[in-house]
Nucleic acid binder design. Sequence first.
DNA 1: CATGAATGAGCTTTCATTCAT
DNA 2: TATGAATGAAAGCTCATTCAT
Lengths: 216, 216, 216, 216
Amino acid sequence: MTAQPIVKMRKKPRQARAVATIEAILEAAAQILQKEGEEALTTAKVADRAGVSIGSLYQYFPNKEAVLLALIRREREAIGAEVARKIAESEPKSGEDLVRGVISTLLVAFRPRRRRRKLVALMASLSVDRDNSGLELRDRVAYLIAAASRRFPDFAARPLSDISAYVLVRAVLGAIRSAVVENAKIIDDPEFEEELCRLAIGYLKAPDASAARKGA
Amino acid sequence: MTAQPIVKMRKKPRQARAVATIEAILEAAAQILQKEGEEALTTAKVADRAGVSIGSLYQYFPNKEAVLLALIRREREAIGAEVARKIAESEPKSGEDLVRGVISTLLVAFRPRRRRRKLVALMASLSVDRDNSGLELRDRVAYLIAAASRRFPDFAARPLSDISAYVLVRAVLGAIRSAVVENAKIIDDPEFEEELCRLAIGYLKAPDASAARKGA
Amino acid sequence: MTAQPIVKMRKKPRQARAVATIEAILEAAAQILQKEGEEALTTAKVADRAGVSIGSLYQYFPNKEAVLLALIRREREAIGAEVARKIAESEPKSGEDLVRGVISTLLVAFRPRRRRRKLVALMASLSVDRDNSGLELRDRVAYLIAAASRRFPDFAARPLSDISAYVLVRAVLGAIRSAVVENAKIIDDPEFEEELCRLAIGYLKAPDASAARKGA
Amino acid sequence: MTAQPIVKMRKKPRQARAVATIEAILEAAAQILQKEGEEALTTAKVADRAGVSIGSLYQYFPNKEAVLLALIRREREAIGAEVARKIAESEPKSGEDLVRGVISTLLVAFRPRRRRRKLVALMASLSVDRDNSGLELRDRVAYLIAAASRRFPDFAARPLSDISAYVLVRAVLGAIRSAVVENAKIIDDPEFEEELCRLAIGYLKAPDASAARKGA
DNA sequence: CATGAATGAGCTTTCATTCAT
DNA sequence: TATGAATGAAAGCTCATTCAT
């Protein structure tokens, strides 16, 4: 895992068998990551647990890193899509509604699977350095919030600056990340969800800081 | 990094020379981590850059992990102490004052040294799994805020629950962490600091969520 | 290239299509060898470049080595045939004539195709160990010279011993080999050709060494 | 053995033990090369036969190729030095004397050790592409001959052009190379040596070709 | 105490070859 | 017959750690 920025899969699967192989590899990688940690994630182990030969692994992934990246991308897209879908079908009536919906969905997505702990930690550390196409979750959430801040009367007072959006999204996801990674039972606590909402909504409704300062 | 769960240092340094050696090793490790990343951090390289033999390194640290842990702890303590000191000498007159002071100090601590980027990422991923004594920074900040929320009139309205403190501290540090790790120039932007303050202060002053709900 | 000592082709091509396939495979191998070197010559790459599946390659060649051997043999036969043909049609009038003709043809055969460099090197290293049927070029040349030394008056003085033939042929081909393999532009230099002729003709005309010694 | 032009040793040995290790590695490599061929030359096998760990091998050689290169260089220097020494102490009285001395020494150097067969083949194929500092043998021989062609009356008639030297040295070494590589008993035959001398001396004494042509 | 040579388990990756489809 | 997914032995190489000097 030295350099090699290659990220794509080595070959497109043309037979159904191949698709199953890829899926098995990713699932095996996820399991090992979860149960034994990143250091235990060796290509041999992944192939073994996936029930395929090591050669097959390398037929579809150019190197170990590519497996990790694919795994992370899959996870991220799954969560991102879920958030978007839930929001779309819940038809929020207010900005507050929407924020509660987003946070609730995020928590649901990260919660049940304590099994995803290591993966989330990895996502945090890997995504940054190596995968710039990977900010989907954050960007999607930021987009949703920004849209809401324009569309709904309760937030309309002040449009969201880029920096505000950055702070809000990173703060909320940062807190969730901590909860997941620190393995805290707190992530199942309704009060945690409530406080997250309070943090977000309070921030979105608060008078503009600079405006406030100038006004003072 | 195979076996050996030992984590403490192998021997107490009794001579000034020993202290200097340890310091040189940690500094070398920090430099390598920063300039070349975690993968490049090998014991041989650390010893070499520190100007000591590999044998000497193992005289002071039982294994590679111990070096990393010591490095992280050093960094964390430095930042924690700085926050505490700045607050102590600034004698805040209000809760808002104190929060602004804490955030400002945190940003100063993380900011100038873009060189600390990799270290911060490491702290995040390592602290959780391997060092349970390591939450000092977070705990210290949480303690400060909690104390303030009791001491100062502007926050007095509602004492900070454990969960609230958790959310607040993780949110703020999470946003800063993002800024540092994503290498964003945003960390130098005054507006970023302002928004962080707005987030924290707004949260601390907002009416209690559950109270509000009950009241409704 | 593990086991399987089989060296012959697996099946006789009975259809024109098969011949074309074999030709495509050999041509692909030659190209890869030339452009990327021996290490890059993998069966998968050969099949790919030849436009056939890896399975098909193994239908015509029992293993990778057989491909190489076929390639070398093809090359060798081509050059050998060319030398023979040129000589036959030039109807040399003297031994010197014939020698000049042979050397000239050899140089023409090896020259234009700097592309054949890697192939020549291969021929040199492979032919020895693995292909004992492969001395055709050398033998053909040796035969030509030997015949000339008997047929033409200018060489008639002394019949060529086996060892003399060996020395002469290896010397001339060795010098050409060096020129090709070392990638020297020398192979295009007319003086090079002239000197080779001088070497060969001088040797063939010189008084017998042992005779000379005895005479002395 | 992909790229990596590194050729030097990884670290200078500072302890006597290290020198012995290096020697053992080279000797083991030579043996394996000889008895089992180039394909059998794996780093593990070399280390094993040398009685050292694989790690030790890589402490002194950056990669497998470096081992080969060191081996070849060692061999080449040994032969080159021997040729030079023998000539120096034999104090040849004529050019013919000197040529006979050189050829005799070369044959002695290559002869007794049928064990050197594979090594010579390797030298031929490797030296060219990868080690440009490696032409010592050829250059040394060429230098000796060139000097002789100027110093001694029997060759004085015509100074040796660069191309003539090239042809002569490659021809002689090419013939010897063939004898060694083809495993022919011919290398032990005194007539072989005699014919080589005849080839070389005849060439050196022959009237200049171009002169001859012009004269005609 | 310091040194650095030695160790070797274990990792990633390649590629010739097979065989079910 | 042609295909290409699957195989897995085996290779090169790294690096944390030990221990004789």
